[in-house]
Design a protein around this nucleic acid. Structure first.
Lengths: 242, 242
DNA sequence: ACCTGAACACCGTTCAAGT
DNA sequence: ACCTGAACACCGTTCAAGT
């Protein structure tokens, strides 16, 4: 009942959760500190889960004091979000590469390549992924998720537009549903702690699912149509995109 | 530093989270209390989200003291789980009804009916669903989710076995993947706060997805085969199942 | 049989004091 | 420019005391 009214207000309307470090490290020792904090976060996350993750524990594991942690992240959520963002960026980058590499391929080929790219990127850090999703419930996390989704779906849409001999009446929706289905399925499967046999089966079936959905969602346009082959996509794609 | 060691241990290894009320209400006033608490939980959940849900707030909203709340639920998670379970049971029941009603139909018809049943059940309490999923991260929540998944997939498998003229080489996996895809997609869509237009599009596309996947995952057996028509499924189904 | 609410421990966050 | 850690407020949970 001393510092009451102000601090009370502050706790009811807490500071906006920022994703960026509140302070940008300028000296090399602080760059190292930030790196240590992020790494410690992942470790604690994997060992104890979000439920038991405390800022003190993270700081301790990183070998710094809590105060230091709060110098770079305005709050616990911001810390988790930073780590989440890095994880998702990894996936997004893998997808962009796969999309670029598949330009001009057949729809079936695209579906296959891209689906496997996503699943394998996800599986490469499966446990981390699960732990992070559990931390991704706040409104701010949605902003990150939306951004990454946008980045990935854009890459997919651009790729599908280069598919020879077909037209998608509503590429945006098709892509969004298809991507969401794959991402959502993987999330459920990983969260449920599925056996590796089930994961393998899911991997197989999701490829079929993507193929089936994409081939159903497009219209074949006849081969003589001027829409295709303004130049030879299959060849330029094979050589021109990394 | 007075009650130290014991209470310290207790907080490091907290009591198992139970889903059931720790005490079963026997007098009518307490039955009413439990009802009020559950209802208050949903209200607070919808108004403030899990992040801001406190046991005190729930108790206050329910018109009881915190102590009373803890008489029926061993901890906050147990309370959330109880509400989650009721929500999911509603979905599961809807699915069981849809599966029973579709026995003996064509695979396409089954896919359509069952997919729409799920989506519409989910949409009927969409906001509650999102709020609850955010609360469903603890290990105990997984037990509930697994149970419900089992219940739903069993119903689906039994239904698919009655599809005339086809055989599924691995029904279990097919069903699990297909169901997970639909559930996961809806979860992502709802959590992302999608527009009703996108929800409608997703609804449409998911039906196609389910049809596509199920028809791809089965083998047609020829009509003369003795596998089908040990009796006429189509007719018995129409009359015999509610 | 059921309810109450002050009291305790833990955790997120801050800030005055250090190098 | 960066770090420290005691101090504060809030929240989950308990338990002695009530009806």
């Amino acid at each position: 009942m001393k510092k009451t009214s102000v601090s009370r207000l502050r706790s009811v309307f807490p500071a906006r959760t920022l994703v960026k470090p509140r302070k940008t490290p300028v000296q090399s020792r602080s760059t190292e500190t930030v790196r240590a904090i992020k790494q410690a976060t992942i470790q604690v996350l994997l060992e104890t889960g979000v439920g038991r993750l405390t800022t003190t524990r993270v700081a301790q594991r990183a070998g710094v004091s809590v105060g230091t942690l709060y110098q770079y992240y305005p709050n616990k959520n911001a810390l988790l979000h930073a780590v989440l963002k890095e994880h998702l960026s990894f996936i997004a980058a893998a997808m962009e590469r796969a999309c670029a590499a598949s330009r001009g391929s057949s729809v079936e080929q695209m579906a296959r390549t891209v689906t496997l790219a996503f699943i394998d990127a996800k599986l490469r850090s499966a446990r981390e992924s699960v732990a992070l999703y559990a931390a991704a419930q706040s409104g701010d996390a949605q902003t990150i998720l939306t951004g990454v989704r946008k980045r990935i779906t854009t890459a997919l849409v651009e790729m599908l537009k280069t598919a020879p001999g077909v037209r998608f009446p509503d590429v945006e929706t098709t892509v969004l549903v298809c991507y969401t289905a794959i991402a959502g399925t993987m999330r459920e499967v990983l969260e449920a702690g599925a056996s590796s046999a089930l994961v393998a089966a899911t991997r197989r079936e999701l490829v079929l699912l993507a193929e089936g959905h994409l081939t159903k969602a497009c219209r074949v346009i006849d081969t003589a149509n001027q829409q295709i082959r303004k130049d030879n996509w299959l060849q330029t794609a094979a050589g021109g995109y990394s």
